[in-house]
Structures are given as structure tokens and as C-alpha cells.
């Protein structure tokens, strides 16, 4: 039994199921991070003193990370465009580079976190609410990066066999993964100034 509009677009909506599905998923993600941003605003306004990001955090490292994520976003969209141009080799290349950028992001994040823990006295989530919300939001964001890497890694590796059998479906999947990946980038674009700079 075949589910209609799994690959082809439904004429009246112009969408295939997966794309609409991932947009709904992203809508709920907006609300998830929205809850945390709302909490951030609420907590910040509820106290007399709120530290400045630079009191605790490393802006150059975070800037570097921002550049990594933006680059990974553009290579992601390029890998999709390569599939559209029927160039599977380029897809592999861009997909791999995306993974490398994501990995670089995680490595930088690792050094950032361990520097906080190694500081004397240690900067822990329980130290104050600024660090608490910093660790929660970036931690959740890192989990999203890991999830994204898992999926991209799958389509880079074993999942890419689908290109030989169902190229259109495979291209759709890469588009969907891309949408998710850009969203993760988009969250970081807000996290960076909110936590580090303002």
C-alpha cells in the first residue's frame, strides 16, 4: 500500500507529506525554544542584577562557532542543490564538509564547557541563573546539533544508497534534513547575541 503524496507534491497544496511534516515539527521547536527564551526574559527582568555575557563567556570562541554553523548551513543547502543538479559526488563532498563544520562546533563547545568547569571557583549551572539558563539553552542546542549530525551522517553514509533507487525521494529527504539543520543554525543566531553579547 502506497501513501499518496509521499514523494510527489499534492496538486492543491503543492507540498509532499514530509516537507509539511517537518515544518510542523519546526513549529513545535519554535515553541520549545520560545519557552526557554520566555524563561530567560522572565528571569532576567525578575532580578536586580543580571551579569553581562562577557563576565563569564568567551566571545571570540562563540564568534568562531557562529561562523562554523553558518558555513555548515550553506554547505548543507549546497549539498541539496548538488542533488538537484544530479551531481552525487558533489553532494557527498558538501555533506561531509557539513559534518566537519558541525564537529568543529562541538569541539569548540567542548572547550568552552570544560573551561567553565575548570575555572576557580567553577562556573556551574547552579552558580547563578545566568549560567543556569546558558547551560540549559546551549545544552539543548547541542543536543539538536547531535541529532542533526546523526541524521546527516546517516544520509552521508548508508542512507545514500537510496539515491540509486529513488533519487527524487532521496533529494526530498535531504531537503527536509536541510530545513531542520537551518533551523538549528537559526536558533544559534539568536542564542549567540542573547547569551554572549547582550
Amino acid at each position: 500500500m502506497e501513501i499518496p503524496f509521499n514523494v510527489k507534491e499534492r496538486p492543491d497544496t503543492g507540498l509532499y507529506n514530509g516537507k509539511l511534516g517537518v515544518w510542523f515539527f519546526l513549529a513545535s521547536e519554535v515553541m520549545l525554544f520560545g519557552g526557554l527564551f520566555s524563561a530567560y526574559i522572565f528571569l532576567r527582568n525578575g532580578v536586580e542584577y543580571w551579569p553581562h555575557g562577557t563576565d563569564y563567556l568567551d566571545v571570540p570562541l562563540a564568534t568562531l562557532n557562529t561562523l562554523f554553523l553558518i558555513s555548515s548551513s550553506v554547505t548543507m543547502v549546497m549539498s541539496w542543490a548538488s542533488l538537484k543538479l544530479n551531481d552525487f559526488k558533489k553532494f557527498k563532498l558538501y555533506c561531509g564538509v557539513t559534518l566537519l563544520f558541525a564537529l568543529a562546533f562541538l569541539v569548540v563547545k567542548y572547550f568552552e564547557y570544560s573551561a567553565k568547569f575548570a575555572h576557580d571557583p567553577p562556573y556551574l549551572p547552579s552558580t547563578n541563573n545566568f549560567l543556569g539558563i546558558y547551560f540549559t539553552m546551549t545544552g539543548l542546542h547541542v543536543l539538536h546539533i547531535l541529532g542533526g549530525m546523526l541524521v546527516i551522517g546517516y544520509y552521508f553514509g548508508p542512507g545514500s544508497k537510496m539515491w540509486n533507487t529513488e533519487p527524487e525521494r532521496f533529494t526530498n529527504r535531504i531537503e527536509i534534513v536541510g530545513l531542520y539543520w537551518h533551523f538549528v543554525d537559526l536558533v544559534w543566531i539568536f542564542l549567540f547575541p542573547v547569551l554572549y553579547l547582550l
Binding site: 513545535s28 519557552g35 524563561a39 540549559t136
Partner: peptide, 21 residues
């Protein structure tokens, strides 16, 4: 539902690693 998930995460942080949200 997702804002409650965010809130649940915050409460878990409060309970497990002693944050003060």
C-alpha cells in the same frame, strides 16, 4: 505542549543539578 517541555526541563535542572530557575 512544547513550552511545558521547556518548563519540565527547567524543573528537572532545578531538581537534579540544583539550579534556581
Amino acid at each position: 505542549f512544547p513550552p511545558l517541555e521547556a518548563a519540565a526541563v527547567l524543573q528537572l535542572m532545578d531538581r537534579i543539578i540544583d539550579t534556581s530557575f
